[in-house]
């Protein structure tokens, strides 16, 4: 399966709709003591198409959360360009950005920390409505807010009685439903969800993954779904981007990337996921740990752990290139899968 380099294929993807969000050469660095720099996001270019679910996967420290936040400017990118719905938002001042924020919302991993424990659920849902105006420019009336609160609870499968209660009265799964409801309050077009089901038990996790899928069907939402769990990402995503040390090493249609991984890292990652099938073949795990993003290896960022690394990989950094329909990879020697 690991073969010689595959010749570059011409861009085969049809000129589809314009991306809802487009990032070009996005970087996010953090200055550390002693003049060192941490490259959390290291030159990522990515398009998020309307109506898709783009899964961002990778191990801890790969920059997937920082990328997710930077895309909607919850973390200020150090350089690069972000275009949302045709408008360059990279340097928009917060005041000008605010009306656009309605259209991009976020759901976090820790369902408890993201809800003020001293406010009732109804209050928490009303807050974004009080801060922002309706799409037409007029304010939300209290009657409209009340109607919206009930509608939101219905959407996420909680009764309107929940509006009178406090966050601690709910389980983790229910709190995540509330967080989703709040993110939906302003009818956003894009939701960035950062590990939204990682803290939940499996049986509850399935409920929330289904909820995300249903809401997308009903409301035509676009998601950037950040998660370390490949099985969850596979379930929800139309496309998957695999990150390693701040960069995308492979991106493409979910089935292509996860079933015919071209990058040796993607392959190792998919094989490392324990399957609930006893006696299944276990491949040799990848050696070593992820290097520090403070001093990332020269050449290909993966070469220190790569089972097929050559001398070239130690010096020359591979660029992301298209190797098949809907599949791009940053590797000098990508896997070639016979059909």
């Amino acid at each position: 399966m690991t073969g010689q380099a595959v010749p570059l294929m011409p861009e085969t993807r049809p000129a589809a709709a314009t991306p809802l969000l487009s990032a070009t050469d996005l970087r996010k660095t953090y200055a550390l003591p002693h003049g060192r720099t941490l490259h959390a996001v290291d030159g990522v270019s990515i398009d998020v198409m309307p109506g898709e679910v783009l899964g961002l996967v990778g191990e801890s420290g790969c920059g997937k959360s920082t990328l997710g936040r930077s895309l909607i400017r919850l973390a200020e990118p150090s350089s690069g360009r972000i275009v949302f719905d045709g408008r360059d938002i990279t340097t928009l001042p917060e005041r000008t950005l605010r009306p656009l924020r309605q259209q991009m919302q976020m759901v976090f991993q820790d369902s408890y920390a993201s809800l003020n424990p001293r406010r009732r659920i109804g209050d928490l849902l009303a807050e974004p409505l009080r801060v922002h105006k309706k799409p037409g420019g007029q304010k939300w009336t209290s009657a409209a807010i009340a109607a919206r609160q009930t509608e939101l609870m219905d959407l996420v499968g909680l009764g309107h009685q929940a509006l009178e209660r406090y966050p601690h009265e709910f389980s983790g799964g229910q709190r995540q439903r509330i967080n989703i409801a709040r993110a939906l309050a302003l009818s956003p077009r894009l939701i960035v969800a950062d590990e939204p089901v990682s803290a939940l038990d499996v049986s509850v996790q399935a409920q929330i993954v289904n909820l995300f899928a249903d809401l997308q069907d009903h409301l035509g939402l676009t998601y950037v779904f950040v998660a370390h769990d490949l099985a969850v990402v596979r379930q929800i995503s139309t496309r998957v981007a695999v990150m390693y040390l701040g960069a995308i090493v492979e991106i493409g249609e979910t089935d292509a990337v996860l079933h015919r991984p071209a990058h040796p890292y993607t392959l190792a990652l998919t094989q490392a996921v324990p399957r609930p099938v006893p006696g299944e073949h276990r491949p040799t795990p990848l050696r070593g740990d992820v290097p520090s993003p403070i001093s990332r290896p020269a050449g290909c960022r993966f070469h220190t752990r790569c089972p097929i690394a050559q001398d070239r990989c130690k010096v020359e950094e591979p660029a992301l290139r298209t190797i098949g329909p809907g599949q791009d990879v940053a590797c000098h020697y990508p896997n070639h899968w016979a059909d």
Binding site: S171, V202, S203, A231, R234, Q235, L258
Partner: peptide
Amino acid sequence: AALLASIPPMDGPRPHRLPAIAGL
């Protein structure tokens, strides 16, 4: 049985919805 079924599969076809266990 239900717990096993609610795990999203890594291989084979993807179910349209996961067979979740209702409640807590």
